[in-house]
């Protein structure tokens, strides 16, 4: 009984960490531009699929992983340069968001053509030997996901809290006019934010691929779950997206286990609706504190 619960909990936390990482990608671009980048899920897909196909091409796994991450960063930056930048001056944020939806469809199509429409498996980073914890079973890859997620959150918190570029990104989001007047180049900042989001998406996709399979269209669901994570956590803190992701993952896993696995995907969306109805700033959101 307890071991069953623990099993659901552990797999929920693992998958939830992935949602959190995807959510963190949303958080970064939102924080630099107030745009919700719906191509975030495609970054996740490109990370996983890229690794799979580069390994098929004969590259050793670590090299394939690094190449796939770089590929995703470049695609993220190209998306900003080719789709967002040209329209940014004259378009509203909503228009930009719709552009990202278009970009996500385009990237999915491109993946079908360049790669294929099949499901692919990726070998685990360090074997499949199961680990038993109080009757529950996990594979080492679960630990990779959790550890990787933790390291990334710390790195991101450091980035926004301590580095000049991180602060500049926040400043650009809070007040683009003032950001320009203190000498921040908004275009560069935005470009970096898309690159960084690509990096996070790719890492999430690569960490989770050995557990869940990967294919050209996994980005849709992972993207939406990640969106759900960041909505639940709120857009104020990077770690909130991770906590939101874990809550979504655990709720989903418990729901699938105890209610019905048919409703697994519905749970995330019910959470989105409840959050938007009752606490639109998210669990950890902070309300505006501007005085004029």
């Amino acid at each position: 009984m307890f071991s069953e619960f623990l099993q659901y909990l552990l797999s929920g936390i693992t998958i939830g960490s992935t949602y959190g990482l995807v959510g963190l990608g949303f958080f970064i671009i939102y924080n630099a531009s107030h745009v919700i980048n719906f191509a975030q899920g495609e970054f996740v897909m490109i990370g996983g699929m890229g690794t799979v196909f580069m390994m098929q091409a004969g590259l050793p796994m670590p090299v394939a992983i690094i190449m796939a991450i770089l590929l995703t960063i470049v695609i993220g930056m190209l998306l900003e340069k080719l789709a967002i930048e040209p329209s940014r001056k004259n378009a509203s944020v909503v228009t930009l968001i719709i552009i990202t939806i278009g970009a996500s469809i385009f990237l999915r199509g491109l993946a079908q053509v360049v790669w294929d429409k099949d499901f692919h498996t990726m070998p685990a980073f360090s074997g499949e030997e199961t680990i038993h914890i109080l009757g529950a079973v996990i594979v080492p890859q679960n630990l990779w996901v959790l550890g990787g997620g933790g390291v990334i959150v710390l790195a991101i918190m450091y980035f926004f809290g301590r580095t000049a570029l991180g602060k500049a990104m926040l400043a650009t989001a809070y007040n683009p006019l003032a950001a320009q007047l203190v000498g921040i180049n908004i275009r560069t900042t935005l470009l970096w934010s898309f690159g960084l989001s690509g990096l996070l998406g790719a890492i999430a996709g690569i960490l989770v691929a050995p557990i869940t399979f990967t294919s050209y269209d996994i980005g849709i669901m992972l993207g939406l779950k990640g969106f759900c994570a960041v909505i639940l956590g709120g857009f104020s803190h990077g770690w909130a997206a991770i906590v939101g992701g874990i809550i979504v993952g655990v709720a989903e896993s418990l729901g699938a286990g105890y209610i019905s696995s048919e409703y697994k995907d519905a749970i995330a969306f019910i959470i989105i609706l409840l959050v938007l109805f009752f606490m639109p700033d998210g669990l950890f959101g902070r309300r505006g504190t501007d005085r004029v």
Binding site: A164, K167, A168, L170, A171, Y174, N175, L177, A178, A179, L181, V182, G183, I184, S236, R286, G288, T289, D290, V292
Partner: peptide, 28 residues
């Protein structure tokens, strides 16, 4: 450098962060 109309703070950032961002072009 300009002090813009309506102050244009980076509202949620701390006073010190606002100041440091002022020195952004000097790479802080």
């Amino acid at each position: 450098a300009q002090v813009p109309e309506g102050r244009q703070m980076f509202g949620p950032l701390s006073v010190e962060d606002n100041l440091c961002l002022g020195a952004f072009t000097r790479r802080m």
